[in-house]
Amino acid sequence: MNVFRLTGDIAHLLAIILLLMKIWKTRSCAGVSGKSQMMFALVFTTRYLDLITNFISLYNTTMKMIFIASSYGTLYLMFLKFRATYDSNHDTFRMEFLVVPVAGLSFLVNHDFSPLEILWTFSIYLESVAILPQLFMISKTGEAETITSHYLFALGSYRALYILNWVYRFYFEGFFDLIAVVAGCVQTVLYCDFFYLYITKVWKGKKLTLPA
């Protein structure tokens, strides 16, 4: 564990808490993509199957369980409890355009052709693009609530911090996972446009709106 990985994990946890708080406090999931959230639940489910097969640390197990539980909690709030507030008209990104190619790629490019390893690879690839329906939704409506933009900033920062963690681990531990690194870089690049808008608008106290 190093400081980049720890702050990355904290940013990830903070993002999830921010989203749950936004939905709970406003009693609404308006502006949140149910498709991105469904894919995040799929990401955690397929990645953390190793909870059953091997133990790494109490920290690792606890965080994995929190991530899985919170992702299904978010789906419960969006699709059951506050279903009426779900903005499905603007959530039109086609999930199969991401899930199908990602599933194919995880069969072709993986560390080991075994079920758990293919599912792990699938989750890494899917996570890298799972935010696209959310970003697409913001581009359609042209704006995001401030709390939603804080959520996205925390969520995007997490993988950016992981890149620093991988640089650190490469130099100090000789650890290098090409699949995670490439997918993590793709994931971070997808946020760049959002990061720019967030820093130039939200940090100056304005709402996140897209240039016309």
Binding site: D9, I56, S57, K64, H111
Partner: peptide
């Protein structure tokens, strides 16, 4: 050596 990878990251 081929062995089951332990993914220790989240």
């Amino acid at each position: 050596s081929p062995h089951i990878r332990r993914h220790d990251e989240l």
